[in-house]
């Protein structure tokens, strides 16, 4: 029959023996593989989040087409907004129309009756 001391001796001895095991080096290639998995999974998740939107824009097309169309439309819109100046005449007409609409009526209703 083994007593408590035997168990404690075994535990101490095994702890000491396992302490002699050499350390396990972590290869850089393994870190790259693990992070590569993370990147692939994240990319796939992002793609699946965008998929319904892209399907609405261009149903049935491969994902790059509606994405490219959306990006193109955004680029054209931005370019128009930045590069095309507002004409002076147009703004003057808008301004006078707004003044006329804001001004009180120049006649009284009861004057000609």
């Amino acid at each position: 029959m083994r007593d408590v001391d035997d168990f404690q001796n075994d535990a101490q001895w095994v702890g000491g023996a396992l302490g002699r095991l050499s350390t396990v080096p972590v290869p850089a290639a393994l870190e790259v593989r693990i992070l590569g998995d993370f990147d692939r999974l994240t990319e796939r998740r992002r793609a699946s989040w965008l998929a319904p939107l892209l399907e609405t824009i261009w149903p049935g097309a491969p994902a790059w087409r509606p994405a490219a169309a959306l990006a193109g439309a955004l680029a054209v819109g931005l370019a128009m907004g930045v590069l095309v100046p507002l004409g002076d005449e147009a703004s003057a007409t808008e301004q006078s129309a707004s003044v006329m609409l804001d001004a009180p009526p120049a006649f009284e209703i009861g004057e000609n009756s």
């Binding site: 350390t23 396990v24 972590v26 870190e31 693990i34 992070l35 994240t42 998740r45």
Partner: peptide
Amino acid sequence: AGDRAAAQALMARHLPKMLSLARR
């Protein structure tokens, strides 16, 4: 949420112990 730096920090914290466990 897709934060790569957090994934890297988790890996740095746990990979050595995990690898050692699996190796043994």
